[in-house]
Design a protein around this nucleic acid. Sequence first.
DNA 1: GATGAATGAGCGTTCATTCAT
DNA 2: TATGAATGAACGCTCATTCAT
Lengths: 202, 202, 202, 202
Amino acid sequence: MRVTTSNRSITAEARRRQIVAAAMAVLAEDGLAGASFARIAERAGVASTRMISYHFADRDELMREVVSTVMGEAGPHIEQFVPVEAGPAAQLRGLVLGSADYYGGHRRDIAAAEEVWNGLRDAAGRRVYGLHSHELEFDIVGQILRAGQELGEFRDFDVRFMCVTLRHMLDGLAAVLVADPAADAEALGAELAATVERATRR
Amino acid sequence: MRVTTSNRSITAEARRRQIVAAAMAVLAEDGLAGASFARIAERAGVASTRMISYHFADRDELMREVVSTVMGEAGPHIEQFVPVEAGPAAQLRGLVLGSADYYGGHRRDIAAAEEVWNGLRDAAGRRVYGLHSHELEFDIVGQILRAGQELGEFRDFDVRFMCVTLRHMLDGLAAVLVADPAADAEALGAELAATVERATRR
Amino acid sequence: MRVTTSNRSITAEARRRQIVAAAMAVLAEDGLAGASFARIAERAGVASTRMISYHFADRDELMREVVSTVMGEAGPHIEQFVPVEAGPAAQLRGLVLGSADYYGGHRRDIAAAEEVWNGLRDAAGRRVYGLHSHELEFDIVGQILRAGQELGEFRDFDVRFMCVTLRHMLDGLAAVLVADPAADAEALGAELAATVERATRR
Amino acid sequence: MRVTTSNRSITAEARRRQIVAAAMAVLAEDGLAGASFARIAERAGVASTRMISYHFADRDELMREVVSTVMGEAGPHIEQFVPVEAGPAAQLRGLVLGSADYYGGHRRDIAAAEEVWNGLRDAAGRRVYGLHSHELEFDIVGQILRAGQELGEFRDFDVRFMCVTLRHMLDGLAAVLVADPAADAEALGAELAATVERATRR
DNA sequence: GATGAATGAGCGTTCATTCAT
DNA sequence: TATGAATGAACGCTCATTCAT
C-alpha cells in the first residue's frame, strides 16, 4: 500500500487539481506560450493569477505537475495491458495497445503534456524534459527487448535506439489521435502493434 | 531551370540570411520562447532589433523562414539518395538514409526548425504547422508505399498511418542526433532503415 | 437614491481617479497623441506605466473614463440651471448659462475631454465618439425645442439641426474659455444666451 | 495677377499634390494619428515612405499643406457667394450659403483638414492651429458685422465672440455633412442662414 | 486559505527621419 | 528625382512574481 505523505490540506489539494485541470485545457488549446497565468486563472474560474502563485511555487512547478499527472495516470493504465507471465513479443504488443487505449481516452491530456514536454525550458534555457527523461521507460522497454533477443524471438537490433524509435512511433499515434478526434484509437493501435511486431521479430 | 523572381536586393537577401542564421542558432539553444528579437539581434551582430523588424514583416515571417529554409535544403539533399529507377523498397531505404545523412550534417538547423514547427502558433492560438503541413511529404512517401503494395513487395498496411509513423521514426532519429553530438548518423540511419524495411515488407 | 455597485475597492477607485486626473492634465497640455502612459504616469507621480496598465484594461478605457468623468459631472451641474417649471425659452437659456458656468469652472477638464472626444479612434480607425454620441443630449434639447414650437414661442426650424448648431455654439464658447484664461464665462454665457434666444424665438 | 514663385519643378509639384491627396484620404478615414507616412505612401501608390520625406521637410509640412490646400480652395469659392455691393446682412447670408456649398462639395477634404486643424501639435506640444489661426477670417467677418451694427441693421452684440460663434456653427454644419453623406448641403445652408440672420439683426 | 496592490523587465512593433548612393 | 538601408526612441502591453494584509 502506497501512502502519499503530503503536508497539504484537502482543500489545497483540490485547488491544485482544479488549477492543473485548467492548465491542461489551456495548454491543449493555446499551447505552452499561450498558457499564461492569466488565461489559466480565467479558465479555472479563480479571481486572479495570485491564486496560482499561492498554490504553486512558480510556473515551472505547475507545468511539471501537468506532465507528472498525465504520466502518473498513463503508467498504471498501460501496465494492465502488459501480461506479466507472457513472452516479450506479447508484452511489447500489450505496451502498444495499452498506450493506444490510454491516448484514445485522454487526447486532450496528452496534448497538454506534450506541449510542456516539448517546450518547457528552465531559466537558463535548457530543456526541462528530453530524451533523458524517458530513461525509466527505456529501461523497462529495454528489458523486454533484450529478453526477446536472448530468447531468440527478436532480431539483433540496437536496443536503446529501438526504444527511442518505439517512443516516437507512439508519439506519432498520439499526434494522429489529437489532430483527428474521429481517429479510431483501437484500430490504429492494432496497426502500430503489427508494425512493431515485424520491426522487432527475428 | 528555376528562376527566383524576388524583388529584394542582393544586400537585403544577405541580411535576411544573416538574421535567419542567427535565429536558428538562438532557437536551437534557447528554444522558441527564448528566441526574442533582442537575442537574435545580438547573435546576428546587428545593432538593434529594429534591423530585424526592417527586414521581416513580423516575428512569424522570420520563424516561417527558418522552417522553409531548412525544408528547402533538406528536400533536394534527400532526393539524391532516392534512386529513381529502383523499386519501392530501395527508394524507401534511400529516403531513410538520405534523411539520416541530412540530419547528421545539420543538427543545429533541424533542432531550430523543430522548435518552430512544434511551437509556433498564430494570433488565434492555432498551430501554424502540424500533421497537415506534412501532406506533401505524405503524398510522395505514400506513392512509394502504395507502389510497393501493388507490386507485392510490401504488406497490406494503412498507407497514411505508415507515413505518419515513418515521419515520427525519423523525428526520433533527429532527436537522438541533436541530443547527442557524438551519435553516428550513418549507423543509426542504417539501423532505422532495417527497421523500416522489416516493418513494411510482405 | 442611486447606488453604484462597483466591485472595485476603495483604494483602487482612488488610484483610478488619481490617474484620470493626471491624464486630464496631460491631455489638456499635450493633446491626445501626447498623452502617453509614460507622461501620465510621471504626472500622476506613480513609479511606472505598469501602474496604469494595472488599473485600466487599456488606453481606450482610460480615455473613455476621462470623457465619462467630465460628462458625469457636467450634466448634473447644468441641470441646476434649467428651471423645471418654467417655459421652453427659459429652460433653453438655463442650458446655455449652466453650460457656460460649468465650462468656466472646468476649463482644463473640458479641454481634456474634447481632445479625447475629437481624436479617439478604435482599432479599426473609426471614431469612438461623434455626433451620434450626442443623441441623448439632442433628445433632451430637442424636447425643449419642440415644446417651444408647439407653444408658439419658437419659430419653425429643423429641430435636430438646431440641436447640432447649439452644441457647436457651446463648443465655441468652450474653445474661447480654454484659449483665454481671462475670458469671462458669465458674460460670454449671457452673450450666447441672447444669440440663442433670438435664433429660436418666433 | 498673382504669380507663384516656386523653385520646384513641375513633376515635383505633381508628386506633392499626389501625396497631399493621399494624405487627405487617409486623414478622413483614419484620423490624424492614423495618418502615418506608411499608410499615406501605400495610399499614394509610391514605393516607400522615403518618397514623402523627400518631397516634404517633415510631417508637419505635409499636414500644413493639407490645411492650406483646403483653405486656399475654400476662400475663393465662398467669395463668389458674397455680393460686394450688397449690404451686411446679404453678405453674411452669402458667407453661410457659400460655405455650405463648398462643404457639401468637398466633404472628404474638410474632414481631412479638420483632423489636422484640431489635432496637430508642434514638437513642444502646442497646438499648431487654433482660434488665433482664424484671425484673418474674423477680421473679414468682423468688418461685415461692424458695418451692419453701424448701419443699424444688426443688434448690439460682441463682434469678436459672434465671429467665433459663427465659425463654430459652420463647423457644426460641416460635421453633419461629413457624418451623413445623404445630408442636403443647400437645405441645411439655408436653415443655418436663417438662424444667423435672426441671431444678428436688430 | 486567500487576496488586492504593486512592480521591473521584457515583449514585438511602429514612428518619422537620416545616410549614402 | 528617386531610392534602399538603417536607425534611435518611444509606444502600449503582458509576463510571472512579491509585498502586505
